[in-house]
Write a protein that binds this DNA or RNA. Structure first.
Lengths: 238, 238
DNA sequence: GGCTTATATTACTCATGGGTAAGAAAAAGT
DNA sequence: ACTTTTTCTTACCCATGAGTAATATAAGCC
């Protein structure tokens, strides 16, 4: 994981890069621990003392990496949102009918809901955020909702989806998906993969037109699952 | 506000009854105010001071009616749960196929989600409750989930519902419904009635067998809505 | 009226936990 | 080795809000 050229005193930049990388790794470690604890106990019951304890440091050390508890909460949310932005961009860029895009969206979203940062998108309360951050979150949520509606509208236009109310359909689908974030837990009987496959089919079959109703791939469990929505998500810069 | 028959010394019971009734009314007023505030701001941000303020009393006065903040939270939840218990009992007692029961359940549940106490079922966090109360809540949630699965299983058995995985189907449906509690708000474009009708159809159409696919009643908006699940729910004793 | 009980208020206690100050320890730079 | 910067700790501060004690007020009751 560390194939640097040499022990070199040659480049005074290397240690610098090293340092920044170490810092970012620690930052991420804090977020991973925090998101877990927040999900486990709820944001208000979770204390920074315990976050720190789990990292074998003390509370004030956290303030080297984050400005406040709320800041940590927001960053957790942001990581989840990045995932979503990533696969939405990928699907947007794909060339397929509305129904196909919708299916892809449902699939990816379901998988995301089964991750910690993904679940934080729906388990965290925007009201715990500063007005500025809450605004960002609200905008992002609106964006997701509009993506659902857009694919549905597209599908109706291209004939792959039956005419229906995109607003209601989007609410119903997103509700099912968001709820995954509340009931899914690792090690349960259902794997994220199975859930995503099932939901992608279940939540869209009612919308498909007769002609677009493909004869059910009936995937023979050959683990065709290859790309777990590898999205070109650019790392945040700030 | 005080239409008592007379100044009567005739019945010493009446004042007593009056008093008890007045007390219960105040209790309920507290719960109505509390549930609103809890939904508005979230349980942790909402203070008993503000609950009291909205009732034009002071915080300690609340302790005449409730033992603790958590007690209030639990009672709010319990009122919502009573509604659910009520209509589940009614549907259980009805004589119809599994699909019909499921539709009825979805419809009633959707309506309930659009009420304050109903929303509290999914917006409140059981982890805020004492272990004893949390246990009650968990049991109730399990009960609801099992009811969904039971109707689906019944439907499969009686041929009104296509063979499917009841667990997944229940999760998907309940998720859509629960999410209503998060996005619905009074005065919006969608009325509880419209939502309930739409969801009852939307969430069950995918499960219906061909033969059970009734030709869509197309209710002429005659406000057939009469009994809002008047349930024989006995008032809690303790 | 006077006695009792219910209900409300004012004025507190007190645990909790986010956040800060001052300085030690470790690492980087020279 | 010495200095400087980053990172972390110990020891605090302090706002908040649930819950309590003591007491006043009002209502029911005889």
């Amino acid at each position: 994981m560390d194939g640097r050229p040499a022990t070199d005193q040659t480049s005074p930049w290397m240690p610098f890069e090293n340092r920044r990388r170490a810092r970012d790794e620690k930052r991420e470690a804090v977020l991973r621990t925090a998101v877990q604890l927040f999900l486990e106990q709820g944001y208000h019951r979770a204390t920074l003392n315990e976050v720190a304890e789990r990292l074998n440091i003390t509370k004030p050390a956290l303030y080297n990496y984050f400005r406040s508890k709320e800041d940590i909460l927001f960053e957790c949310w942001a990581l989840g949102q990045e995932q979503v932005d990533g696969f939405i961009a990928a699907i947007d860029g794909s060339r397929q009918a509305g129904l196909g895009k919708l299916r892809a969206l449902v699939h990816s979203y379901a998988e995301t809901m089964a991750t910690d940062f993904g679940a934080s998108l729906v388990r965290f309360d925007p009201r715990d955020l500063s007005p500025a951050n809450a605004k960002i979150v609200r905008a992002a949520k609106r964006g997701i909702d509009q993506t659902f509606r857009r694919y549905i509208t597209e599908g109706i236009a291209d004939g792959s989806i039956k005419p229906c109310d995109p607003k209601m359909a989007a609410f119903a689908i997103a509700g099912s998906l968001n709820w995954i974030g509340h009931w899914y837990q690792r090690g349960g009987a259902l794997t994220p993969d199975a859930i995503a496959d099932d939901f992608a089919e279940r939540l869209t079959e009612g919308l498909a037109t007769a002609r677009s109703n493909k004869p059910r791939p009936k995937k023979p469990a050959t683990k065709t699952k290859k790309s777990t929505t590898k999205a070109p998500t650019p790392r945040r810069t700030k």
